[in-house]
Design a protein around this nucleic acid. Structure first.
Lengths: 336, 336
DNA sequence: AACATTCTCCAAAACGTTTTGGGAGTCAAG
DNA sequence: CTTGACTCCCAAAACGTTTTGGAGAATGTT
């Protein structure tokens, strides 16, 4: 409530001593320290953040920009991750905030505002694009950051990502092993690294199996996008018998297309992200997800190490993808 | 990039003049102003946010705490709302950030940290409880805030809310008019104002129609909670023929319970929130939503007026609820 | 010529904290 | 008695900005 000067005055001490007492320095006697702490507690003293930042030349703040663009980030996991991350950053004296992007501005604008106004010590980026201007900007400013998702940037940067290529290749091969030959892919916007990566995984598997890669449709990473893309694939003269979808949301949209076209029990389908919703669709949605227990902690750790100056190459984590089998991936395969 | 001092030096002007030139004061000549602006642009000067805040005694920041608790806030609308709000606040020179709650801390802790550290000028609160300690705290500190959702706080405070009571009453009466007599309610945790309000609406309608109000089950405001609550109601000797659900997520969980128990086409159901996902369930979910076009703008406006010192009573908006009819609310009604 | 007015500009203070570089006082050893 | 070490405290500077209260020059007015 009060400020340091008032607190000092009321105690008959100097500002310096009060400040150092609260910070636990050894050059203030134990009795004084205790006296100061009690008084501070009593009046609920909290240092003024701006003054502290100005003096320490550190914002004690980390920001993550919230993509507002087309598809929303899988909120449940995303938010869990951020809570965990915030917890570990807090232990290092850093606060985490999410910056929504005002309509009419870009994520890059936000980065600029936060970085050039020295409002943050580091940044977190999610939903990277293959060519990501935010990454380029942060690299040009030399501010520490970690991305959730890789990019095709020439200069390496710290990231955590799932191995979408391997995951989607494995999922496709599994369909092949189950006898499927017409395996379609519902792809996300290819400018996103994750969408491109997953598409490449499907394509690689199809080519390994000597299958054509024409059963691919792209859409927005939302239910509606998946719905439209699925309708497009179902319109083909030779329909797919299985669908590998870039995201769960798209898979849920596709599920509706399947229900409309063939009653929904003919075609196998798998998504990615393990949205809680997937357990409640009809049929329950089989999916994949990134392995790794405490993702938030990993992000925090990478970020702290980036701030400490470790090089980007040491700060890259690629996690394997695991299957979450429910029902949608094993619809009975009927003769063509 | 640079400093005001450095910028002034490079121009042969005083710090004062440069500062005032950039702020567009009239007491610096047009030519100097232009010269300063060009130089500032060239070196990419941005004022140091901490210094500015310290001097102006305003944080130029508004924070909203992100409930991590049990149920997640309907992300699509929530995020849209925040983008719109951020846009309008930005026009007033205010930044908006979302503060996730670190594991191990409470939303109240976050409020405390932001408010007592003078990090924010105002706050936004979502998912209010009937007795909400965040509201009490902010009131005790006298800091401007607006909530999304009412509370039972004795002192009035600014809010925007949907009229859940009227909405759920209307939905229940509609089922009654369609011939339903056993209308169940799947309720959210009653400590939340919205959940209690909606439950009261259902109860009021049932009592008006002279029907018993025992077909009510409470659960977490998530798919799983709705699923379990629905199973509970379906276990009753005399099953409901229609279900009014506190949220869409709960309704989607209930939908799965219906599918498991009776194939899913016997019981009518309606949710609330108009989640995009609802258009893709089976059957497509009928739902309700708060009316009002530019919710973000409303929030921003209320917040700015609260900061300007208008009294709480003038800053309360209660919005009507409208139906979003899809299929789930008109399952054929079969004789008991 | 004397005075008021307007136009530009600036030195200095202030915001609240942390940190630097000592300054008293006490005590024990030389 | 002097010296050095140690303990406890503090004055002042610094962080980078905005704002206050003029100063000096040019212009207009009597």
């Amino acid at each position: 409530m009060a400020n340091l000067k008032q607190l000092a005055q009321s105690l008959g001490l100097s500002i310096t001593t009060v400040s150092r007492a609260l910070d636990g320095y050894a050059d203030v006697s134990a009795t004084t320290r205790e006296r100061v702490r009690e008084a501070a507690d009593k009046v609920g003293y909290r240092p003024n953040a701006s003054a502290r930042r100005l003096r320490k030349q550190r914002a004690e703040l980390v920001a993550v920009t919230l993509p507002s663009d087309p598809g929303h980030i899988g909120p449940p996991h995303f938010l869990d991750m951020l809570s965990g991350c915030a917890e570990h950053l807090a232990a290092a004296g850093l606060n985490l905030v999410i910056a929504p992007v005002p309509r009419g501005e870009s994520e890059l604008d936000i980065c600029r505002r936060f970085v050039d106004g020295r409002r943050v010590d580091a940044m977190l980026l999610v939903r990277t694009k293959r060519k990501d201007e935010r990454v380029e900007f942060l690299q040009s400013r030399g501010i520490p950051f970690v991305t959730n998702g890789r990019t095709e940037s020439l200069a390496p940067h710290p990231y955590i990502d799932g191995d979408g290529f391997a995951g989607f290749r494995a999922a496709t091969l599994r369909f092949h092993a189950a006898g499927h030959r017409r395996i379609g892919h519902i792809a996300g916007p290819q400018e996103y690294y994750f969408a491109h990566d997953r598409c490449r995984g499907w394509r690689a598997a199809m080519e390994e199996c000597g299958l054509a890669t024409d059963l691919c449709a792209e859409g927005a990473p939302l239910e509606q996008g998946g719905y439209l893309a699925a309708l497009e694939l179902l319109r083909q003269p030779s329909r797919p018998t299985a669908l590998v979808c870039a995201t769960d949301e798209m898979a849920i949209g596709a599920l509706r297309a399947l229900r409309e076209v063939d009653g929904g029990n003919q075609i196998s389908i798998v998504g990615h992200d393990d949205l809680p919703m997937g357990a409640f669709t009809s049929p329950p949605l089989s999916t994949m997800r990134m392995t790794g227990e405490h993702l938030g902690a990993s992000f925090a750790s990478l970020l702290l190490r980036a701030i400490a100056g470790e090089t980007a190459e040491e700060l890259q984590e690629l996690h394997a993808i695991e299957f979450v089998d429910r029902d949608s991936h094993r619809r009975p395969l009927r003769a063509a």
